[in-house]
């Protein structure tokens, strides 16, 4: 367990360091994800080591957004007089982005003959 956790933290640390060093716009943990993925591809033994712990963390990914979400409650007055316009933009734009993204995925998958089963 401690090996898996250490490896995850090392990947994040390497990601944070690299992205700052290079001045990239990518967040460190996202780069860490790419690094861990590459390591898992390179070594199946490492993949089986990391899976139980990693999946344990991911099982309740929602929980990890709660502290930031509580911060929103205190800042909601920042929206001020424009609150309704901003909320309208957020709701409509999110619905549109979901519909267009998924629609284009399905359409291109059909055109290129990609199968749905994994």
């Amino acid at each position: 367990m401690i090996h898996a956790l250490t490896l995850i933290l090392i990947c994040q640390l390497a990601g944070e360091t690299l992205t700052r060093l290079m001045g990239w716009a990518v967040p460190g943990p996202v780069l860490g994800m790419a690094l861990l993925f590459a390591l898992m591809l390179a070594s199946p033994r490492l993949a089986t080591l990391i899976i139980p712990i990693g999946e344990g963390i991911l099982r309740h990914l929602s929980l990890l957004f709660v502290p930031a979400g509580v911060g929103v409650v205190g800042h909601i007055q920042l929206l001020g007089a424009q609150g309704v316009a901003i909320m309208a933009a957020l709701v409509l734009s999110t619905i549109l982005a979901l519909a267009v993204g998924a629609g284009v995925f399905v359409a291109v998958a059909r055109l290129t003959g990609g199968r749905e089963d994994g």
Partner: peptide, 9 residues
């Protein structure tokens, strides 16, 4: 952060 890294799984 670690959870984002774990999305590699």
């Amino acid at each position: 952060g670690p959870a984002t890294v774990a999305l590699a799984i």
